[in-house]
Design a protein around this nucleic acid. Structure first.
Length: 1110
RNA sequence: GCGCGGGUAGCUUAGUCGGUUAGAGCACCCGGCUGAUAACCGGGAGGCCGCAGGUUCAAGUCCUGCCUCGCGCACCA
């Protein structure tokens, strides 16, 4: 900012210190105008700059992918991110907020494949990997502008001009560096493992992706007979995946489990489905499961432990499918201690390549490891003529038929076939989270990060994180970590960070950690005579470019890159350092900002970003990645269903931005429930928030600003000692201080919803409905009275404090208000409760509490005054209730009201007289005149004394014939009920009005603070009262007319009034009507109807009135 | 199946350490009030506090089991 601008700013500040009057509220126009102003002023950067010397508070943005349209659920997460960052900024911290974009990965590829009609990996190769990846690179930004617009419109302040982008070469290079750290530590390894695999996308998934796609499905499960060689019997085994049967090479039994040999004794009735057995056929299965499995009547021939079955050989189901090789154990019974009898037959069909346990067992026992299914999910040629080339999930029926044929699929089974039974089976099965196809467990090459190795560190670091809510950290996330598996990090895909590992055919490997290293290695290879493309400084670190480099192993052999890209979750997990291109650049920045102070995302990121951040930081730095994590609940639609693209129930944030505005939308989100609870997004709730919270706030402001403008009020040109202001002012300021303190305390404990609900209640109830309503007339005075000035200062203080409290949550309207009242933006204002971030030596975690408190700026609290006012307000309500019951209209005054209360509220008698519409208020000290006593037992005190008699004792107290006498004896210490001595603390004295009075009694406060107050109203009429009452009714009607006619407040009118059956109207009351309604010329006609047909008319308590206003 | 979090009025929800008659808001009905307000105030109607059992003088609150919704984990044959 240059000197000229500074001067401009000062000039405008001077001009703006005197509020302009506020117009009618148009929230959307207000917000869009502010967006312009912010942009012009560079307000976001300025808000950070103004804290240049403040302690840093480090926020890390979880990068969204911009290849989908943003919905309201994204707004919620951004609202909470923004809220905390703004709040901390106001506390004096320097809160840098770098944006980020997640740009790699399967979702992008799928999108492009769909759009370009590339149905398979072959199609992609045909299209060209370079073309394909270019298309992905472009596709990533499809919705970037939509995201940007949403982000700006909702006023999420984040730097989108300098974001980190996971596809950037710098970013990728940092990821490579991280990979190499893990490689060097021995945490990265290549393995052949059974992984959930999707043949459609041609990729395997890590456990956190698999978790996204569990679906309940019904599939055919089959009981299959494995015909023993050298034995008449068959072993029964069960499987839910018939497609794995051709790959069967073993059977596993539990060595301790008891098995039986059973013989079918008669044919089964009512057989359903395929399969069966002949009389005399023998089967072997676990004894425990025999009843459940066998549909035939059988006799048990023999019982034996599983161990005695081990080693027995059986006929392969599909003899051609798997070559025996040199395996001695193929198609024999093996033992495995994990075999249970919870379902199936107690015998586990083992297909080495298609189950994790199977694979491990097969490797240990020396079974042949041979695929029967290709990477495309189809049976390999040679498996069986009827199966070859077919997609495995389509073959269930064919396999069932093959097995059922006489002699079975191998022709060596019993005449009844090799299928014993089929049974529909309902279970949860993992499906591809992108394509919805069932995943196949499939043995394949893959790269892993040895997370199991650092499990203890993960748990330790996790316990250091401040989680909100804590149970996500301890429970959900903790549980995940306790069961941590090695991270399958490679993907057989194209668009992602390439795995920077090169390997020769002997298995020698090199992991490349930077471009420089790559260049050096390429040069080395070229020197050894290996042809290589150029490797410039800006080499694109993507496929296929990096695939084309052939490096040289230490053994002098050519090495090719392992043809994988990395799980894109690894990319985002590298964000804390890769966003700075660490360690190639930004080392200082990184060192000063790691681990980060705050992250905030949806709870669905528990296994996603929350995990990968910690996983990477632990594996690479042996440090945690973040100190605080706010885990947000899911956003549901109005019906309680999860919002998702596929369901089409996503709410468009613009619906609300363009109607109620971003302020109301954000405030609604925060007040609707605890951040971690699921939020049922209710459009109606946003409207309600607008009407209640923001309209009210605006009108409070308008009330103040309009008169401040008329009077030329300038808070710096006059003073008003708080101590000398009227009690109403001291009360609202005390309430303000109390509310602000609670607000801040709730913020600190992440209870933003509580904070904001209470603040809203304060604004609507205390400020608008009481303070402003009671103060309206104070500002009508044209003279510069001390009372008016006090009120204006009070309003100024309330509003400026409220603006600062609300600003982090809903930043628009409060900035408009604050600017008009102070000439400055609220977004550089100090938090009313202190600015710890600006203190010497402060950090985001530690600061001098006392010093911070000294920077706080709140009026004094007066708790007694607050509770007295609560009584006064209660009495005003009681008065209305009494009138309703007595059928006396509010505008007809009562001559007297009596208050019966232990509290002195003398100073509020004026207010009360007006509220109650009584001529005089009297304090009645003789409580018994209107009231009688009732005694209520205090269970908490009584229970320990009276024990099981407590109810009997309580009843005696409650139903005492003469409560006053009992109270007297209690006070005298002589009261005993059913042998229990009753003391004052054992009872609660309640005062109830005596019957026959227009009176009511209420209890205010709770516990020890509780007290009863009563109000009695004199219902007798006098001519003076009737006159006054009528005058008020007439005035009110005329005022309504003025409003209908849209008259200016100062405008005068010509008034003519006719009355019939009216009580006498006193001079002073007629004058009152004239002055209240600003009537210049007034004519009263008593006891006559109006001749004018356009006169307004009404009736009240038998009196008819006509009037005209001109 | 295991874990976590819910289930309170038609809807959204508060309910502290177990304590007297379970509070609000929206919507609905009646009445009142109002020259800031799509506001406000009084009243009405609307509650098997998911179900069952237990502990207790006393349970929306604590314990057990079950039902149900959401989320997470997970197993395989």
């Amino acid at each position: 900012m240059n000197r000229g601008e500074v001067q401009d700013k000062n000039a405008s500040r001077m001009a703006m210190a005197r509020p302009k009057s506020a117009g009618k509220l148009d929230a959307v126009a207000l917000e869009t105008a502010l967006l312009e102003a912010w942009k012009k002023e560079n307000a976001f950067q300025q808000s950070i700059e103004s804290n240049r010397n403040g302690a840093p508070f480090i926020f890390l943005e979880g990068p969204p992918t911009a290849n989908g349209k943003p919905g309201i659920h994204h707004v919620v997460a951004r609202a909470y991110k923004d809220l905390v960052c703004r709040w901390k900024t106001m506390e004096g911290f320097r809160v840098e907020r770098k944006g980020g974009w997640d740009t790699h990965g399967l979702p992008v590829e799928i999108e492009v494949q769909k759009r370009m009609d590339l149905k398979s990996n072959e199609a992609i190769h045909e299209f060209g990997m370079d073309n394909f990846n270019q298309a992905c690179r472009d596709s990533v930004w499809t919705y970037e502008s939509a995201w940007r617009e949403m982000t700006e419109r909702m006023a999420y302040w984040v730097d989108l001009d300098n974001p980190y982008v996971t596809l950037d070469n710098n970013y990728v290079e940092s990821c490579w560096w991280a990979m190499k750290q893990m490689f060097d530590k021995g945490l990265l390894y290549r393995g052949y493992k059974v992984l959930p695999y999707c043949p459609q996308t041609g990729t395997s998934y890590s456990s956190h992706e698999v978790a996204l796609g569990y679906k309940e499905v019904e599939e055919p499960s089959v009981y299959v007979k494995f015909k023993l060689i050298d034995d008449t019997a068959s072993i029964l085994a069960w499987t839910t995946t018939p497609w794995t049967l051709p790959g069967n090479v073993g059977l596993a039994v539990g060595p301790e489990v008891t098995y039986v040999r059973a013989r079918v004794t008669e044919q089964a009735e009512n057989w359903i489905g395929a399969g069966g057995a002949s009389v005399g056929e023998e089967v072997i299965l676990a004894k425990e499961l025999m009843k459940e499995v066998m549909r035939h009547n059988v006799e048990i021939l023999e019982e034996f432990p599983g161990s005695s079955l081990v080693g027995k050989a059986y006929e392969p189901l599909f003899p051609d499918a798997v070559p025996r090789g040199d395996s001695a154990t193929a198609w024999t019974v093996l033992e495995a201690d994990w075999v249970t009898t919870t379902d199936g037959t107690g015998v586990v069909h083992t297909a080495v390549m298609y189950g994790e346990d199977d694979y491990n067992l097969g490797m240990a026992a020396g079974l042949p490891a041979h695929h029967t299914v290709g990477m495309d999910g189809a049976f390999l040629t040679g498996t069986h003529p009827q199966l070859d080339g077919q997609y495995v999930k389509d073959c269930d029926q064919t396999i069932i038929e093959l097995l059922s044929a006489s002699g079975g699929s191998n022709g060596k089974g019993p005449e009844s076939g090799l299928l014993y039974r089929e049974k529909a089976y309902l279970h949860d099965y993992p499906h591809c989270w992108r394509t919805d196809h069932p995943l196949l467990y499939y043995a394949m090459d893959s790269w892993f990060v040895r997370m199991t190795e650092v499990k203890e560190r993960l748990l330790e670091f996790n316990s250091e994180v401040e989680w909100a809510p804590d149970w996500v950290g301890e429970g959900r996330f903790g549980e995940w970590l306790r069961n941590v598996k090695d991270w399958a990090i490679s993907r057989e895909r194209y668009w992602g960070t390439p795995l920077p590992v090169w390997r020769d055919d002997e298995g020698n490997m090199k992991c490349i950690g930077s471009i420089a290293e790559l260049q050096a290695e390429v040069a080395k290879a070229v020197a050894a005579g290996i042809k290589n493309p150029e490797c410039p400084d800006d080499v694109d670190l993507h496929r296929p470019v990096v695939d084309d480099y052939t490096l040289l192993s230490d053994g002098g052999k050519p090495m090719q890159r392992e043809p994988f890209v990395m799980d894109c979750w690894f990319d985002s997990g590298c964000a804390p350092f890769a966003q700075w291109h660490y360690p190639f650049e930004g080392n200082e920045t990184f060192d000063a900002s790691f681990p980060v102070d705050y992250i905030c995302e949806g709870v669905d990121q528990t296994r996603g970003w929350f995990y990968t951040l910690l996983a990477v930081s632990t594996a690479v730095f042996d440090k945690p990645a973040y100190k605080r994590c706010l885990s947000l609940g899911l956003i549901l639609d109005a019906e309680g269903k999860k919002m998702s693209k596929s369901k089409g129930n996503i709410v468009d944030p613009w619906d609300h931005f363009n109607r109620e505005g971003a302020d109301a939308t954000r405030w609604y989100m925060v007040t609707a429930g605890a951040p971690w609870n699921p939020l049922k997004f209710d459009s109606n709730g946003v409207r309600e928030t607008y009407a209640k919270m923001f309209l009210t706030l605006w009108n409070i402001y308008k009330f103040h600003a309009d008169y401040a403008a008329i009077d030329g009020f300038d808070p710096e040109q006059s003073t008003s000692e708080i101590a000398s202001r009227p009690s109403l002012d001291r009360w609202i300021l005390s309430r303000l201080a109390t509310t602000a303190r609670n607000y801040h305390a709730d913020f600190k404990s992440w209870n933003f919803h509580k904070a904001c609900r209470d603040l809203e209640d304060f604004i609507v109830n205390d400020v608008s409905n009481w303070y402003v309503r009671r103060s309206r007339r104070r500002l009508w005075d044209d003279a510069e009275t001390t009372d008016k000035v006090a009120c204006q200062h009070t309003l100024h203080e309330i509003l400026t404090t409220l603006c600062r409290l609300i600003a982090p949550v809903s930043p628009f309207m409060v900035d408009t208000i604050y600017r008009n009242l102070t000439g400055e933006t609220v977004h550089q204002a100090a938090w009313p409760l202190g600015v710890p971030g600006s203190l010497e030596g402060a950090t985001a975690d530690h600061w001098d509490e006392d010093a911070a408190a000294e920077t706080a700026n709140l009026p004094p609290q007066d708790i007694t005054l607050e509770s007295t006012m609560a009584l006064v307000r209660e009495l005003a309500e009681v008065g209305r209730r009494i009138r309703v019951e007595a059928g006396r209209r509010q505008r007809l005054p009562c001559s007297q009201g009596w208050i019966v209360s232990g509290t002195d509220m003398e100073e509020f008698h004026d207010i009360l007289a007006e509220e109650l519409n009584v001529e005089t208020i009297a304090v009645e000290t003789d409580l018994d005149r209107f009231q009688q006593i009732e005694l209520a037992p205090n269970f908490r005190a009584l229970a320990p004394k009276a024990r099981s008699e407590v109810n009997a004792v309580a009843n005696e107290i409650k139903n005492a014939a003469d409560p006053s006498a009992m109270l007297a004896s209690i006070q005298a210490g002589t009261c005993e009920v059913l042998g229990v001595k009753i003391e004052e603390s054992d009872v609660e004295v309640r005062r109830v009005e005596r019957e026959g009075f227009a009176a009511s009694t209420v209890t205010v406060g709770q516990g020890d603070e509780a007290q009863q107050i009563s109000l009695v109203l004199d219902m007798n009429d006098t001519p003076a009262l009737l006159s006054k009452g009528l005058a008020r009714d007439i005035t009110r009607r005329i005022q309504a007319m003025r409003k209908d006619l849209n008259l200016a407040i100062e405008a005068t009118i010509d008034l003519e009034i006719w009355t019939k059956n009216a009580p006498e109207m006193f001079e002073q009351d007629r004058d009152w009507i004239v002055s209240e309604t600003r009537a210049a010329a007034t004519v009263f006609h008593l006891d006559s109807e109006s001749p004018s047909t356009d006169a307004e008319t009404f009736e009240v308590d038998g009196t008819s009135v006509w009037f005209t206003v001109k």
